[in-house]
């Protein structure tokens, strides 16, 4: 399938959102609100629950289903307070020694005046730094859109998995077409050139797994077990080993001549 069609599928309404994943994968969920500094950001849902019986911290970008929900969730584009809430809960997970599971689905971190005034760049940068050395396991699943820094701020993880109709790009294909070619109609060409669909990313060594999504019920059944198995494997390591491996995972990313 061509890249642009996949990107359109990743944005399709009716697709399970972050909160749907939380509800199907985690039991005993308790949502926690706010960054303790400015506000609560509804574009990020976070809390504590159980994965196959074990306590876990879960953080999900949420777009909403209905127009009313989508407006409330700011269409899944977080403000700095959303990223700060996520970091607060990650630090809490570290304190209580439970793993962190993130679901990514955002067209990008919000590009507005309030976001800039409250330090969008700084909020993302702090997450990148802190997640790299967080002592508990982190696993991130891309369930739809993976828009640039706004997605990466929840994806400095030990493993990154993607649904087959998700994407993970440095810039939206629309943005790329308009900046590079001053022509928003070149969005298909941009989608192909950015190499942002799961198969490309797996080949480039940027993600670990692709999850088939044609059978939704099967996904709801198997995903918790697969996640739980992976967390068990990650927890078998010491935190020093795990952090070293996490850094090494990103350290090898990059292609150049020398």
């Amino acid at each position: 399938m061509e890249a642009y069609k996949r990107i359109q599928l990743s944005r399709k309404s009716g697709r399970p959102t972050g909160l749907d994943f939380v509800n199907h994968v985690v039991t005993d969920f308790f949502e926690m609100h706010g960054d303790r500094r400015f506000a609560d950001d509804p574009a990020i849902v976070a809390g504590v629950g159980r994965l196959c019986g074990k306590p876990i911290t879960v953080i999900a970008q949420e777009k909403g289903h209905t127009m009313k929900e989508r407006t409330f969730r700011n269409f899944g584009s977080p403000h700095p307070e959303g990223y700060r809430k996520a970091l607060r809960l990650m630090k809490q997970a570290e304190k209580f020694g439970r793993p962190v599971l993130c679901f990514v689905d955002t067209s990008g971190a919000f590009c507005g005046t309030g976001a800039e005034e409250r330090g969008q760049g700084l909020a993302i940068a702090e997450n990148l730094c802190e997640m790299m050395t967080l002592k508990v396991p982190i696993l991130t699943v891309f369930i739809g859109e993976g828009g640039s820094g706004g997605a990466l701020a929840l994806a400095v993880a030990d493993q990154v998995w993607m649904l087959e109709n998700a994407y993970y790009a440095v810039i939206s294909p629309e943005g790329c077409a308009s900046i590079l070619w001053k022509d928003s109609k070149k969005v298909r060409e941009a989608s192909d050139s950015l190499r942002c669909v799961p198969e490309d990313l797996l080949e480039l060594g940027l993600i670990e797994r692709i999850l088939p999504e044609s059978d939704q019920d099967a996904l709801w059944r198997t995903l918790p077990l697969e996640l739980s198995e992976e967390f068990d494997a990650l927890e078998a390591m010491t935190s020093e080993e795990r952090c070293a491996k996490r850094y090494a995972r990103f350290r090898k990313m990059g292609v150049f001549k020398e």
Partner: peptide, 20 residues
């Protein structure tokens, strides 16, 4: 943009080095 998602990963890579 011309190096795709690999460019995005440089943000995490450099941040890790800064953190250490």
């Amino acid at each position: 943009m011309q190096e795709g998602t690999t460019s995005l990963m440089q943000m995490a890579k450099t941040s890790g080095a800064v953190k250490y």
